[in-house]
Computed example of a mutant assay.
Amino acid sequence: MRPARALIDLDALRHNYRLARRLCGGDDGGGRALAVVKADAYGHGALRCAAALEAEADGFAVACIEEALALREAGIGKPILLLEGFFDADELALIVHHDLWTVVHAPWQVEALERTPLPKPVDVWLKLDSGMHRVGLEPRDYRDAWQRLRALPHVGALVKMSHFARADEPDCTRTTEQLDAFAAATAGLPGESSLCNSPALLGWPQARAGWARPGLMLYGVSPFADPAHPSAAQLRPVMTLESKVIAVRELPAGEPVGYGARFVTDAPTRIGVVAMGYADGYPQFAVNGTPVAIDGRPGHLVGRVSMDMLTVDLTAHPQAGVGSRVELWGKQVPAAQVVAHSQTSSYRLLCAGKRVPLEYRG
């Protein structure tokens, strides 16, 4: 069997969720946290991750109803929020039947709820565009929408929410501006609020009240460029992407390696060929020197990543050879280090896995 695989540490996942819940004031402070498991739990496997968290999670968040129904079919009974809401009024019947919560972010969705009587109340999270300008009601329309929904007998809890655009930039004033916009638009409206994504939860204490929505941090990856960020330093990586050396080449100086001769040896060099490529989710444009771990020791990538294979420098690893374990990211090689060498983001890195099998522990 091909040795490429992704090891998923469910104990680390639970640790990260507990950290998120403590930061938002869980247990003693009244805060709660929805574990965001959209996009197949950022590539970690939504069904297994949700099952691992269900005993302690306050609920889950997904992008759309298809993802929610897959969780329900797998036996997940905790609340599930549809972050993009419903795309058609016909979905409201399914939302009620499966006890889902829905975001409402557009006037047409408010109107759909007004003209669609439901057999039992549905909880609604009413989203304000506080400055990200993606989805959400305009501040001038928010209060009227809230009052219209509150008047409906088939609307249950009504949670006020928004989303930050630049919370992963600690020195940027945009998050403070969005907080102020949210406070102004919702002043005097009762009920709970939800503002924090992962970077806001980790880096903006003034935004932590109410429901948090941790996503990236659940999987042990910091949203910040600074690896020493105090809260993010407590995270534990959940995914370890690894494979093995399948061939070794002894090359003299002056020899090119891989497509395009992007790397040329400047001295006699041992090259290890690893069964891992961009079809497995490893970034195609990782540069020479991107860190890896070879049999537990620091090493680095050389040459261009191809679809099924990549190459590493074994010159300083005389003990390594065919069968040696290579960690591409995980407990020894932080995903953020790979991101910094790869013209990509942590989100895309985690979600890019395709054919690599997931193996669960913990």
Rank of each mutant, 00 (worst) to 15 (best):
A4E: 10
A12Q: 02
H15I: 05
L23F: 10
G26L: 02
R32T: 13
A33H: 03
V37K: 12
A39D: 02
H44V: 08
H44K: 08
L47P: 07
R48V: 08
R48F: 07
A50D: 04
A55F: 02
D58V: 06
A68L: 05
L71T: 00
D90Y: 06
E91I: 09
E91W: 08
L92K: 06
H98Q: 12
T102I: 10
A106E: 15
Q109P: 09
V110G: 04
E111I: 06
R115L: 14
L118C: 01
P119V: 10
R140D: 14
D141S: 15
L152G: 03
H154V: 01
G156W: 00
L158S: 06
F164L: 08
R166P: 00
P170F: 04
T176H: 13
E177C: 12
Q178S: 09
L179Q: 08
A181V: 04
G203K: 00
R208L: 07
L216V: 04
M217L: 15
L218Y: 07
Y219G: 11
G220N: 02
P223L: 02
A232L: 04
A233L: 05
L235M: 04
E242Q: 12
V245R: 03
V245C: 10
V245T: 05
I246H: 00
A247S: 12
V257W: 09
R262I: 11
F263L: 11
T265F: 15
T269E: 11
I271H: 06
M276L: 12
G281Y: 03
V287K: 14
P291S: 10
D295Y: 07
G299K: 01
G299E: 06
G303E: 03
M307D: 14
T311R: 11
T315H: 02
S324C: 12
L328A: 05
W329V: 11
V333Q: 04
T344F: 04
R348A: 15
K354E: 12
P357D: 10
E359K: 14
